[in-house]
């Protein structure tokens, strides 16, 4: 076998997120932003509300990123991006990508009215929600993205969360925005491809990225990517894209659907679950998966 000199890289080499940032070991959100900036390039403005990334970026006057950042209030990620885009248009800088980069709390709970308003006006922004399934930055409080039964500091084992995860993708599909997609850090090529596609579309584009958090999920840091991959393979977080609220297309075809037990076992936040709880979770995952499959077949 001939020795190959070059490494086989599937993504561009340019980095816009620098080393020395303040992310925890094995942070999924860090990987997610690294991939989307590889796709969007240096002509990007990030509007970051209060979330993990507001801290990871570093204290003033330092920043680990080589793109512009606008730190805004918690509930205003989408409306700030709208304003930045309008300002850049007035200056004549129309090819700048304006990105809202918010966590699941800033999207599903606090920022949803701003996001809904921006989607209704069809403002030319990219809204990215990185979903680590709780308010991790402030100390692992329950958000509406937290799955049923998961431990957080506000839903302790004695008083577990009984509500299911909010279906933000269906909410955004109901807004009939030009493009929306779900993505996972375990499939960076898929995420990169979708972001390149979204870059060339005008209007509101929504991304929902699954980003494991070893600190909040009580899992080992080295399992972060493995957990994200398992979530896709177990049909817990299917990867698809939707255009104008219809034409759902699955991106990762699942050959053998596995039970979610292995995924739950790797995380300390699900350690207290009884077999009956796991059974009910499995049924819910199956229901959601069948709903997605039906939409993908167009019936």
């Amino acid at each position: 076998m001939s020795q190959e000199k070059k490494m086989k890289l599937t993504l561009p080499v340019e980095e816009y997120v620098g080393s020395g940032n303040l992310a925890c070991q094995g942070c999924g959100a860090n990987l997610a932003l690294r991939y989307i900036l590889k796709a969007l390039g240096p002509k990007t403005v990030l509007c970051i509300p209060a979330c993990c990334w507001a801290v990871i970026d570093g204290p003033f006057p330092h920043s680990c990123m080589s793109v512009s950042i606008y730190h805004c209030a918690f509930e205003t990620a989408a409306s700030t991006a709208t304003g930045v885009k309008a300002g850049l248009d007035m200056l004549g800088d129309t090819d700048m990508n304006v990105v809202s980069w918010a966590g699941d709390g800033g999207t599903l709970d606090i920022g949803i009215q701003a996001l809904s308003g921006a989607a209704e006006r069809n403002d030319d922004i990219i809204y990215v929600c990185y979903d680590n399934e709780a308010y991790m930055n402030t100390g692992i409080q329950r958000s509406s993205a937290t799955p049923k039964g998961a431990w957080t500091t506000t839903t302790p084992v004695k008083f577990p969360k009984v509500e299911s995860k909010k279906d933000i993708d269906a909410i955004m599909a109901a807004h009939r925005i030009p493009y929306q997609a779900t993505a996972s850090i375990a499939y960076p090529e898929d995420l990169y491809k979708k972001m390149l596609k979204a870059k060339n579309i005008k209007g509101t584009r929504f991304f929902h990225i699954f980003a494991p958090c070893p600190t909040g999920w009580k899992s080992r840091p080295e399992d972060a990517v493995k957990l994200a991959r398992m979530a896709v393979q177990n049909c817990l977080f299917p990867l698809y894209e939707i255009e104008h609220g219809e034409n759902l297309a699955l991106n990762i075809k699942i050959q053998n659907k596995k039970p979610i037990d292995d995924y739950l076992k790797l995380q300390g936040r699900f350690r207290h679950l009884k077999p009956a709880d796991i059974q009910s979770m499995q049924e819910e995952v199956d229901r959601n998966w069948n709903r997605i499959l039906k939409k993908a077949q167009g019936c």
């Binding site: 490494m7 086989k8 599937t10 980095e15 992310a23």
Partner: peptide
């Protein structure tokens, strides 16, 4: 095998791929 997977999944950009090996 120079697949670049360690570089791809490093959250801290700490695997350098300028040489022929990571």
């Amino acid at each position: 095998i120079r697949c670049g997977i360690c570089w791809k999944f490093c959250p801290d950009m700490s695997i350098l791929v300028e040489e022929e090996l990571p």
